[in-house]
Computed example of a mutant assay.
Amino acid sequence: MASVLSIDPSWHPLINGCPPAWASEWGEDRYGVFVAFTLDAVTQRLRWIPPGRFRMGSLEEETQGLAESDVERVLFEQEHPRHAVIISRGFWLFDTPCTQALWEAVMDENPSRFKSPNRPVEQVSWDDVQTFIDRINARVPDLGLSLPTEAQWEHACRAGTETALYTGPIEILGENNAPALDPIAWYGGNSGVDFELEEGVDSSSWLDMQHPNPRSGTHPVGRKQPNPWGLTDMLGNVWELCADGLRHYEPTMAVDPEGPTEVGALRAAHGGSWADMARFCRSACRSGREPAFRYFDLGFRCARVQSS
């Protein structure tokens, strides 16, 4: 345990000025270190997520009174108890959800309902994403992408914070009205703002919308305020699939925890989406999805775990 606790969060793979062979750009800005690869003229940036310790899940006070059904009550109970987690190795993470442009460059097709190159790909299943990862890793030597575990995902989303959102607490004024979400997330309260595609979903009957609009859907990635580590759209836009399933939380500290990974196990998804009410767009909120499940609020972003 001592070696795990002595990790140096200030170390990163580019500290000696040696980018990987696949890098098309790299550098450091006010959010930290980044690197990118380019495939068929599509560039995807990854941010360095340092190792460290964080508190995973939510306090019971955060979800108290949020559930409006027994199903939601069970869902929110899965966020408890909040517990300490150590991520022992830093990793790279896409700074946005995977775009339709990148998906199409790898897969030669686009299953998304809200078609636009710079919007997140959706209507992809966990099984589909495994095929995508196998193909992109075959095309870009040593890229080594995977999905993040849900512990890695929440560590990256929180970026050192402990509140419901990475910008602070959330005050929910109505089902689709949480002003604190507006600067950082496309959710059920604002996803109709400036929505221009014909394939929009009829949102005219949605309750308590912060910005009422007749049609809603996903939006181009990277338009909202990033978290402290430079990641955008971690909340809202699309739910993001994780590598593992829903682990049962315990009050004890966990090191690099993983949920179920056997074939057919439900896979964790995090972050909420453009179609979700405010209570689902929180750093700790989690749900389970069948590996073959596809829907137009479900996407992903890839990770690259540093091997040394």
Rank of each mutant, 00 (worst) to 15 (best):
S3R: 14
L5T: 07
D8K: 09
S10Q: 11
L14Q: 00
L14T: 00
N16W: 00
G17Y: 00
P19F: 00
P20Q: 02
W22T: 04
A23P: 08
S24T: 15
S24V: 04
W26N: 14
G27I: 01
D29S: 04
R30N: 01
G32D: 06
F34M: 02
V35W: 01
A36K: 10
T38N: 10
L39Y: 13
L39P: 08
A41W: 07
L46A: 03
L46N: 04
L46I: 00
P51I: 04
G52V: 05
R53W: 12
F54A: 10
M56V: 06
S58R: 08
L59Q: 05
E62A: 11
T63C: 01
G65Y: 02
V71M: 14
V71R: 15
R73L: 12
H83P: 05
V85Q: 12
F91S: 04
L93W: 02
T99V: 07
Q100A: 12
E104Q: 15
A105K: 13
M107Y: 04
E109A: 11
E109L: 07
P111M: 10
S112K: 09
S116N: 12
P120L: 13
Q123V: 07
W126P: 10
W126K: 08
D127H: 10
D127S: 15
D127F: 02
D128R: 04
D128L: 03
V129S: 08
T131G: 10
V140Q: 03
P141S: 02
L145Q: 07
L147M: 06
T149L: 09
E154R: 05
A159M: 07
E162C: 12
A164N: 02
G168Y: 04
E171A: 07
E171K: 07
I172G: 10
G174I: 03
E175T: 10
A178E: 03
A180K: 13
A185M: 11
G188T: 06
G192H: 05
G200Q: 09
V201E: 15
D202Q: 09
S203T: 13
L207Y: 02
H211N: 12
H211T: 05
P214Q: 14
R215P: 00
R215C: 00
K224A: 10
W229C: 05
G230K: 07
G230W: 03
T232D: 06
G236K: 12
W239P: 13
W239D: 14
L241D: 05
L246N: 03
L246G: 04
H248Q: 14
T252N: 14
M253E: 15
M253R: 14
M253V: 09
V255Q: 12
P257G: 07
P260K: 11
V263C: 09
L266P: 00
A269M: 13
A269G: 15
G271D: 10
G272P: 02
W274R: 09
W274A: 09
A275N: 14
M277Q: 14
R279A: 01
C285W: 04
S287C: 14
A292K: 14
F293A: 15
D297G: 11
R301E: 13
C302E: 03
R304H: 06
V305G: 05
Q306E: 15
